[in-house]
Amino acid sequence: MMRPKQQRLVLVVAALVALGGAALLALWGLESRAAYFVTPSDIVAGKVEAGVPLRLGGMVREGSLDRKPDGVTVSFEAVSGADVVEVSYTGILPDLFREGSGMVAEGRLGADGRFLADTILAKHDERYMPPPLEKAQAAGETLER
């Protein structure tokens, strides 16, 4: 026979296990819907419908940033792995937006496969370091997880 104290302990442990399991199942089900953005790979794989509002997250390919003569319109290539999607945007870019770094664009996919962005957010990575180390460290690594 268990004492009441032990009964309550078993009950609490069982409740915690059940709770954890329920939470895991719910999150598993949420996985694709809770994604904050889609990647260029999702677009290349044809998982994204044209014209639907969504966010696109990827790395800005080095050397792809093209500023148009009007001064506020830019286009660049967003990459994830080997997949590339061209993004065009008219507006002010955040300070941390730069080639080789991460970004998230809000907008929709055009029928021609270009992504038309209404808003651009800069995404930075989890590394923090003083300026002189920058070149040595950034050489090999990408910012992508």
Binding site: L27, E31, A34, A35, Y36, F37, V38, T39, G57, V104, L121, K123, H124, D125, E126, R145
Partner: peptide
């Protein structure tokens, strides 16, 4: 788990 704007740990 998810794509987030927040960087990883």
């Amino acid at each position: 788990w998810w794509n987030t704007l927040h960087q990883g740990q």
